[in-house]
Design a protein around this nucleic acid. Sequence first.
DNA 1: GGCCAGTTTCTTTTT
DNA 2: GAAACTGGCC
Length: 753
Amino acid sequence: MNEFLKQLNPVQRQAVTTINGPIMVIAGPGSGKTRVLTFRIANLIHSGVPPHQVLALTFTNKAAREMKERIAKVIGEKARRVWAGTFHSIFSRILRMESEKLGYPPTFSIYDTEDSKTLIRDIIKTLGLEKNQYPAGAVLSRISNAKSNLITWKAYANNPELISRDQMDKRPAMHKIYKQYVTRCEKAGAMDFDDLLLMTFRLFYENKDNVVDKYRQKFTHLLVDEFQDTNFLQYAIIKRLSKYQGSPENICIVGDDAQSIYAFRGATISNILDFKKDFPTLQTFKLEQNYRSTPHIVGAANSVISHNAKQIKKKIWTEYDSGSKINLIKALSDTEEARRIAGSIVEQKNRYHYENKEIAILYRTNAQSRVFEEQLRRMNIPYKIYGGLSFYQRKEVKDLMAYLRLSVNQKDDEAFRRVINYPKRGIGKTTLDKLMTVANSEGVSAWEALDKDIFNARTTGLLRKFKEQIKKLSGAAKTTNAYDLANLAYKSSGMLSDLAADNSIEGMSRQENISALLDGIKEFIESDELITDLPGEQDKSISSYLQSVALITDFDEEKGDDDQVLLMSAHASKGLEFKSVFVVGLEENLFPSFMAKDSSSGMDEERRLFYVAITRAMEQLTLSYSNSRYQYGSMRFNEPSRFLAEIDAEHYLNPEVAHFDEPEQKMVSRVSGPQIQKRGPVKSYVGPPKDFKVSNPADIKDGMKVRHIRFGNGTVKGIEGKNENRVATIYFPDSENPEKKIMLKFAKLEILS
DNA sequence: GGCCAGTTTCTTTTT
DNA sequence: GAAACTGGCC
């Protein structure tokens, strides 16, 4: 047996060494999922599969990066030739080589969400629609959803269900916007994030020049991480590559339905069920042992997830037999919350000798990071924020990037719009409107409309000057490398002098950001990363740079040894682990998000997200909430999150802070009287029912009928442990998962007989 | 016709 | 709190 295989438990080893045929690994949190994936790839290569024939798809850049690093640790240099990356980055790489088969230039632009929204706003205006009725974000997500389900604008317009849905939402023109949006993206030689997948599917489906055969032969072994997060379209592509006449069906999917947190993006659990049908010879492996967290964390996770009705049966367990309980912090304001957590971090570092990077703060929305930043800075704790407004979304960075985009693709309307009057050239709204109107009516891009003779002499002159500038850049783009071009664009556009004129603190930081961007481009040119077997991979052109950067969300300066506390959204934390985790802002309308309030599926997804967040913790888990916080510019008062009450009290260090009323009182039947309790913002603890008498835990014996303050009536099925540590197994027939282990020391139980 | 400043609107999560 | 939008001034 290979040396590295000894590091696996029997199930893991089987999942790694079953080389041929379709396999599915259901992996609970902390069960060694990444280890299985990386070892599996290593084992494939050991068994003679050439690295460049392995395709491993992940969801986030972070996951892809980590996978590559870990493969390299096992098999070394060869790891670089494995095709590992996000769906979007791998497919955009392929599209870049094959784009002409789809009628796109290889230098096609990639529209980010902001570009897409701006375009949608413009379309709504052009169509003369009421913008309040058609919020750009909602329209985009509807279009995105359609694309993710392979519904073209034509199919959309002919689909009675979708049309009546839109009419009910008072947005009957949705399909028109969809059509316009697709047309205008095409005219601009641009793809949005969904297009990167959709066009790949089209490429493989239309199969011009048998292009799909090439990739089927090339990728003999497929691996898909976080399969529960794939949407219909992604699965369609995977299937296209791995299921066909004579296919070896060497495909391995890894996932956990309990960690599905991207349904909002179209991810669907039915992919797992379909997978079983599509690949009947499927072998399934379940990894349930948790190697990450101590018992109270695992216990809390299990009790939280048990509140979700639908799930593949599985219970994670751990061999660890001791560990801290969950600490709960209740604050009066968001500032206080942040201050106390910063204090708690200092304390934990002293007590447990944690390094900063072993500690993470997880929140529901990126906007929450701000207060934590302030407090951490105040206490001199180094920190790093993942996600949020990324480096590449800053105005000045996007501006320079827009020049670069225009230099390789002049039809890119969104880039055009962005820089036509930045820096100021006296080309204002009126001119741009006129230009766009002509462009739209002629079905061309704004750039092409520049040639129309419709402006007065002054404006014509200004436009010509702009055109000359871009032409110069585009000429340079063909001969110089990305770095030199970026420098040229920075100077010749006038951005340099515009920024240099601003000596404020913000102005200085904008200049620094541009320098950082330029450094990044330089690094891109000099690095020898991503050398694979296909042509175009050592491509150092600006176009290649733009492609790679469009899909990066965090500005990762690969300084892995930086010792900083990490701040990120719960979503971004998936797949990571930390000695100590703080999950903050546990309030109704925040976590769970108010957006999820109306649907039970939305609430289930929030709960899974909470499950993901708490299972990141190895040793310490701290939860916190605040009675008030600044949200959207004004003070809000939220009640404690329902999720806090879903964790069994035995797992809390300070359960008295955790005693909330259940949001719904379905388990505790009141004897009489109306339900009056309204959870006030300040005192959330509403005591037990009046007739409830807590019995002395020492008196509780096997076989007794008891009543629990939350779970209702039950029967004691057994008692383990001694004195302080007695744990009873109690059967509550009214509860969703009736059998509960309860630590008697904390339990509020009344003996009935 | 452009520019600026004050006003309104819309707030999740990711590629 | 930020970004989009509007109205009044040059």
